[in-house]
């Protein structure tokens, strides 16, 4: 056990190859832990109806239909949300379907805090960061589109979705070990005055 924490072993871990391996392992472990935590500890699955949403620039034209009054239709839900699953169909091409999220409950929205939908089994699925208390679903980006909502759920999905690997993380995996390697190299050069 003592041998594991020597300077030599640490140095061995600082090669680029090792960093890539550690990165891959770390990514997998992080996602597994995240998925388990999400499943076991937090966030109850819940089924909602349209009545739970506060409409802005939209009109509830029936129990399960929404009509876009302008090109910026919004449906706002206030509550603890980790993911939003909406199964719906549109009367016309709606444009991009997006959801915004906010930690507060004061209807503050920004393009930096937005998610595009993934499509799983006919559901539009949005995953949000931890600690979100208000979300805004935009049923399209055009006026005069009617949305027929079949089902709305929050915090749904199986373990596979909760583990939540994304393709973009491949890119992180490519970039981050290099970045860590550079920071380490700089420290080794500046602090330990190693000749790199």
């Amino acid at each position: 056990m003592k041998k594991l924490f020597t300077v030599e072993t640490l140095k061995k871990c600082m090669t680029l190859k090792m960093l890539y391996l550690i990165g891959a392992a770390g990514l997998v472990l992080f996602h597994l832990a995240y998925g388990v935590w999400y499943q076991v500890l937090a966030y109850q699955k819940q089924t909602l109806s349209l009545a739970d949403f506060q409409p802005v620039d939209t009109e509830l034209s029936g129990a399960d239909t929404v009509y876009n009054l302008t090109d910026d239709p919004q449906l706002i839900y206030t509550g603890r949300v980790k993911s939003l699953w909406i199964k719906c169909s549109f009367s016309a091409q709606p444009g991009e379907v997006v959801a915004f999220y906010s930690r507060g409950t004061a209807n503050e929205w920004s393009a930096d805090r937005m998610r595009y939908a993934r499509q799983i089994d006919g559901y539009y699925v949005f995953d949000f960061p931890v600690g979100i208390n208000q979300v805004r679903f935009d049923p399209g980006a055009y006026a005069s589109v009617e949305t027929q909502v079949e089902d709305i759920q929050i915090n749904a999905g199986g373990l596979a979705e909760k583990i939540g690997f994304t393709y973009g993380e491949l890119l992180y995996w490519l970039i981050l070990p290099m970045l860590v390697y550079l920071v380490i190299a700089f420290v080794r050069y500046a602090v330990f005055e190693e000749n790199l």
Binding site: P94, G95, E96, V97, Y116, Y167, L171
Partner: peptide, 8 residues
């Protein structure tokens, strides 16, 4: 990122 965007 372009790689993760689900889109209509």
């Amino acid at each position: 990122t372009v790689f993760d965007k689900g889109q209509n």
